[in-house]
Design a protein around this nucleic acid. Structure first.
Lengths: 166, 166
DNA sequence: CTTATTATGATATAACATAACAAAATTTTT
DNA sequence: AAAAATTTTGTTATGTTATATCATAATAAG
């Protein structure tokens, strides 16, 4: 099956070059910030890099712990402000059901997104499926509701983990 | 338009008999607990009643404040344990994007549910739309993902609030 | 009525997030 | 280039949400 373009970020193959993966994400972020005149400061860049340290959601305080080990004086606002910036510009997403953050697979594309969360390996796949978004929007509209934001998070097992049995 | 049965709880009409509404919810809960041999203790019943005090999501600590004014010694675990029980038996739902709880409109029916959250009046409508759930499930399955739980929360404006302009 | 189970009380602490103000760095204006 | 305005970061304190743990009480089962 050929990848559909509404899969923004698939589950990563079991062995992939994650260093390269991070580099790509940072490059895309720098590109975007250059294009839009945004300031991807060293701190913000580093926080983005830490969010991308895995393909799973990362908690703010995990990031804080990492930061503290490299610079003195990092505090919760240090992290949350950087996360706010990254979120405002669609470089990361917040996973509401986990109180955690995940890198956006395609910062150039404006999207809300749907997330598949593997409860076994912790990886996240990101979709931007017009069928899903459309069905939700249509149903809401039929009830007179005006949609601002859709939060769609599906938890379960990714293909690799489901295959492995329990 | 005649109500569809996948609307589990609509936005409440601007002036409805909320006392009656709470009574109905508590009756349904008692019915269910009787049927299934569950213990709806006075504490749990009271917490459910407090969750139903409005049609909007209620925070755990709001409930705690109310409890403290009526019984001495209420503490966070008092509330969270009751909420856990109510959740385990589908008497309430947790709204992940708000860290808050809302009464379930139909405890007899097993369902995950989708929620429309009005950011203006705070009311919640609950759906159990097979189109939405099906579209999500189908798409996830196509990616080899096994779905356990869908979290679908849509924020925006309900019909009444959208009508009122700003 | 004794034992086992379930529910609640009570204290402490963990995990997640923001408010408010000061200092530093950067950009803009002159 | 200097001054002013803006944005970013540092710093301290606090607010908000949730859980761990162990003791006691209430209820159900044998």
């Amino acid at each position: 099956m050929t990848p559909r373009d509404d899969v923004i970020a698939p589950f990563p193959p079991k062995s992939h070059d994650h260093v390269h993966c991070i580099e790509e994400a940072l490059d895309a972020a720098e590109q975007k910030c250059r294009d839009e005149g945004l300031r991807l400061t060293p701190l913000r860049r580093r926080v983005l890099e830490l969010v991308w340290s895995s393909h799973g959601p990362v908690g703010a305080y995990e990031i804080l712990d990492s930061l503290r080990s490299e610079r003195t004086g990092a505090a919760p606002p240090t992290v949350y402000r950087a996360l706010d910036f990254l979120r405002d510009h669609d470089l990361i997403h917040r996973i509401e059901s986990l109180n955690a953050f995940v890198g956006c697979g395609d910062p150039a594309r404006r999207h809300g997104g749907q997330f598949l969360l593997c409860s076994q390996c912790g990886a996240v796949a990101e979709l931007d499926d017009p069928d899903i978004a459309g069905t939700v929007a249509r149903r809401a509209r039929a009830l007179g509701f005006t949609v601002d934001r859709q939060t769609i998070e599906v938890s379960g097992r990714c293909g690799a983990c489901a295959g492995k049995g329990s």
